[in-house]
Simulated assay, not measured.
Amino acid sequence: MSALADRVAQMTGAATVTDPERVPGGDISDAWRLTLSGGEHGSHRTVFAKTLDTVPPPGFFEAEAAGLAMLAFTGVVAVPEVLAVEDDVLVLDWVEQGAPDAAQAERLGRDLAALHDNRTLAYGTPGRPAYLGTLRLLGPDEPVTEPEDWPAFHAEYRLRPFLRDAFDNGAISAADTLDVERVCERIDQLAGPPQLPVLIHGDLWSGNVHWAADGRARLIDPAAQGGHPETDLALLELFGCPELSRILAAYQEVSPIEGREERVPLHQLQHLLAHAVLFGSAYGAQCGAAARAALARAA
């Protein structure tokens, strides 16, 4: 067996593990399909494993496993089962790929509305690490809990850290940096009504919706945290998502949000900044455009 197969066998207690097959995955981790045989999981169970080709940041895979557990605990969204996790490997149940369809999309919209009904004690992830890609999400020393404090939290711990990194890396121009900083300065005026902290997926771009053959879409690769529900919805719109109109319409039927469309650029800005840090200046220009759109729509 390969080193990865040996590692997964040791982690899961399987008697044997077939040689791993690389499968399409995200932009950050390497993705593998393996089959477990014997041991506590029985015969011929297919699993999905994630690794990094560099040393993972501290608690990287543990943070993803914790996020999946948080989402699963609500009982209202579907996620892959976590089978094992260690510093360098995450092993999940395999979910067979399916095609996007109206029924899955409408259920996903209703499920997301139900997810966002789950209050959290504070914004962010007090007491545990969380990551967006390989970028660590920061937080204050004291938990931020009040609805009116979300704008300042978002500016200070979700926008400015990535803005500084992107500027230092040469991934965003000085002019675009100033426009993002204007958003941070005016965020109280841009953020809309006060919002209690609720559980969000936190990285819900379309690639993190896994359309399943069994007819129920799974949420994968979360940056689960206490946050603003509009962030999840705005991220579904960021790079396009199959059946998006059905997802959003079903969500709105359960939990209408007045004026959400005007705030979409604000809620997309964090992820565009993270992309600028990770992938370069093409995203820096998009950050500036999103900042100007946020400012214009709130004018």
Rank of each mutant, 00 (worst) to 15 (best):
R7M: 02
G13N: 07
A15C: 04
P20F: 13
V23Q: 08
P24Y: 10
P24S: 14
G26Q: 13
S29V: 09
D30Y: 06
A31C: 13
L34D: 07
G39W: 04
H41N: 04
T46I: 13
V47R: 01
F48R: 00
K50P: 10
D53A: 11
T54F: 14
P56F: 13
E62Y: 11
A63V: 08
A66H: 15
A69W: 00
M70Y: 01
T74E: 12
A78K: 13
V79C: 05
P80Y: 07
E81M: 02
V85Y: 03
V89T: 15
V89L: 10
V89E: 12
W94C: 02
Q97C: 00
A99R: 14
P100Y: 04
Q104E: 11
E106T: 13
H116L: 01
L121H: 13
Y123Q: 04
G124Y: 05
G124H: 08
P126L: 06
G127T: 07
A130L: 10
Y131C: 00
L137E: 01
G139M: 03
G139I: 08
P140H: 11
P143T: 11
P143K: 09
P143D: 10
V144M: 12
V144S: 09
T145E: 15
P147Q: 12
W150S: 01
P151L: 11
F153Q: 00
A155D: 09
R160L: 15
R160Y: 05
P161E: 09
L163P: 01
R164H: 14
N169M: 12
A175F: 03
A175E: 15
D176K: 02
R182N: 08
C184Q: 08
A191R: 00
Q195H: 03
L204A: 11
N208Q: 12
V209S: 06
A213N: 06
R216D: 05
H228L: 11
A234M: 12
E237I: 01
F239P: 10
G240D: 08
G240Y: 10
C241I: 06
E243F: 04
A249E: 14
A250L: 06
Q252F: 03
Q252Y: 05
I257Y: 10
E261I: 10
E262K: 15
L266M: 11
Q268S: 12
Q270P: 00
H271N: 13
H271G: 02
Y283G: 05
G284Y: 07
A298V: 03
A298D: 03
A299V: 13
